[in-house]
């Protein structure tokens, strides 16, 4: 494709990204550095600040979260679940906006989402993280990494690999326009198990790869190896998802009362 077409494609993905995802990296960074103009996020760093935070932060999912008597770990886990379910809906809308996606075999659309959504979730989670913690509840709160590490087993391990990934990923210095094309590429991976018709998927991904290469060349002229570095991150993402699925198996075995949302059950079943 011509360079102008590739720029149009990259711009289109950025517009979809802004349309379907509630918080951009730019917004998250502004909140974390106190430049957003809003009030600073409420910092949750121990059990008492968590209790205070639950009073002052407006969570969207009040109805589906266990009551206050429930263990902290279970409440946090259920909030993570709810946010993941919302994210799957957002990512599905984003995927449908990728030119050519809705013309793919419907079974293949399901497969691409089944395998892609968590890689996208963990890519975008990096935007909300720094080495010390992560923004929660659309930027109203900031939960520290140390607090999460202090939760009981196995919940203390839930986010640590994602922090490790986030710190390295964030060091690439990508902006929202770069991330938008990258996650479209992640979704259109032609090597997902069980795909029926790989060729059109690879063709779409190829256009996006060209759009990303050009985007990075123009947007980061001083980082000539950024494209190659970014593609290597796709391997790390698969590893993180595999570990995440293993942790969920552990949680389901050890935590009798833990309910997994039906949408997440669908996605995790026979995943890896």
């Amino acid at each position: 494709p011509e360079a102008a077409d590739l720029r149009t494609l990259a711009r289109h993905m950025f517009e979809s990204y802004c349309k379907y995802f509630p918080i951009t990296k730019a917004k998250a960074r502004a909140i974390m550095t106190g430049k957003a103009g809003d009030k600073s996020p409420f910092v949750i760093y121990d059990m008492s600040s968590l209790k205070a935070g639950e009073e002052c932060i407006t969570f969207r999912q009040q109805a589906s979260v266990p009551p206050h008597g429930t263990a902290v770990e279970i409440r946090i886990f259920q909030r993570c679940q709810f946010r993941s379910v919302e994210a799957v809906r957002e990512i599905t809308e984003f995927a449908k906006s990728i030119p050519g996606f809705v013309s793919l075999d419907l079974n293949d659309q399901v497969t691409l989402l089944k395998y892609g959504v968590h890689e996208v979730i963990f890519t975008m989670l990096a935007s909300l993280m720094n080495k010390d913690g992560l923004l929660i509840a659309a930027g109203q709160g900031f939960m520290t990494r140390e607090f999460i590490k202090s939760l009981r087993e196995p919940f203390c391990h839930m986010l640590e690999p994602k922090f490790g990934f986030a710190v390295k990923f964030n060091s690439l210095g990508l902006d929202d326009g770069d991330i938008a094309v990258f996650i479209a590429i992640v979704i259109l991976s032609g090597d997902r198990p069980g795909l029926v018709n790989v060729k059109p998927i690879e063709d779409l991904q190829d256009s996006l790869l060209q759009a990303l290469a050009l985007q990075l060349k123009l947007n980061h002229p001083d980082s000539p190896h950024l494209f190659a570095k970014l593609l290597q991150k796709m391997t790390d993402l698969r590893q993180i998802v595999t570990e995440h699925v293993q942790l969920l198996h552990t949680i389901r075995k050890t935590e009798g009362e833990m309910n997994l949302h039906p949408l997440l059950q669908e996605i995790y079943k026979d995943l890896y």
Binding site: V88, L106, L113, E266
Partner: peptide
């Protein structure tokens, strides 16, 4: 496959109609 992924399938068809 779409039979085993009813919610994902419905999200792909019309996400606004799906009550999660």
């Amino acid at each position: 496959l779409k039979e085993k992924h009813k919610i994902l399938h419905r999200l792909l068809q019309d996400s606004t109609s799906v009550d999660l």
